[in-house]
């Protein structure tokens, strides 16, 4: 039986089946696991560090991480390719319909998954429902100088274009929506469309191996759309019908 979620008043939660607007291609054959994307993302998006004990509890807040898996035993041991894992900006996102506060909604304008911090009440339903485990929760006021005195000076580095999240708020990769807005605003002020490659996300910008490409997946001639047509392309957990906007290119 199929349920029409739109009839369940979950309008906006699952909105599209089309190919999407923004997309990313990650070449796992090139990714060296160097963590440059993770650091760049943290610096761009004011992501807090949680320190050793909380990190041990699995509360670290990386919006992007490199996964790797082992196969076999020494000496026949193999490591899978590094898989940078970030919010897949699903077209049919499992996180969206479960939010009681409509804090994680689908952006119809940019066709990505939004996390609206001021609406979030911290139920963590979305994180529990995310098959990619890419949502992270602020268990403490990590960015409050009253809790952490060192934030007073570290906060000089904060990106003013991104909200500093407080305790009890869920967060995740936004496809650097602040950069999308900035590029669109600039293009509009010059009376033109955003060009392919004019801007990119912080992770793609930093990646020394050029493994990450970002752009308009719905423009067939854009670099990201061309790469997504590669015979090596695959989507993670595609069988769940989440319509991920991140395409991975296999090794080989």
């Amino acid at each position: 039986m199929t349920v029409d979620l739109n009839k369940l008043h979950a309008v906006g939660a699952i909105a599209e089946e089309a190919e999407g607007k923004w997309g990313m291609v990650i070449d796992m054959d090139l990714c060296t696991g160097c963590q440059a994307c993770v650091a760049a993302c943290a610096m761009e998006n004011n992501i807090p560090y949680v320190e050793e004990v909380d990190a041990g509890y699995g509360r670290s807040m990386h919006w992007i991480r490199t996964e790797r898996f082992w196969e076999g035993e020494y000496p026949e041991v193999k490591m899978s390719a590094y898989q940078p894992m970030l919010c897949q900006q699903c077209g049919k996102a499992p996180c969206e319909p479960v939010c009681p506060a409509f804090a994680t909604v689908h952006s119809q304008a940019e066709q990505i998954n939004l996390q609206v911090y001021n609406r979030c009440v911290g139920t963590r339903y979305c994180a529990n429902n995310c098959p990619y485990q890419v949502r992270s929760f602020n268990w403490r006021d990590y960015q409050d100088s009253r809790v952490r005195p060192e934030i007073t000076i570290l906060a000089n580095q904060f990106n003013p274009d991104v909200t500093v999240r407080r305790r009890g708020v869920m967060e995740k990769c936004t496809f650097c929506i602040q950069r999308i807005h900035k590029a669109q605003d600039k293009a509009k002020s010059e009376g033109r469309e955003v060009e392919d490659g004019e801007f990119t996300t912080a992770c793609a910008q930093a990646c020394p191996a050029n493994a990450i490409t970002f752009g308009r997946i719905d423009h067939p001639e854009s670099l990201v759309a061309q790469l997504a047509r590669s015979p090596r392309a695959e989507h993670h957990l595609e069988e769940l019908g989440t319509l991920p906007r991140v395409t991975y290119l296999k090794e080989g």
Binding site: V105, S107, Q108, E110, L114, T163, I177, Q178, H181
Partner: peptide, 12 residues
């Protein structure tokens, strides 16, 4: 209208 009432237009 979609663009101007999208959550992501102001909140990120």
């Amino acid at each position: 209208l979609i663009k101007l009432t999208d959550c992501g237009t102001c909140h990120y």
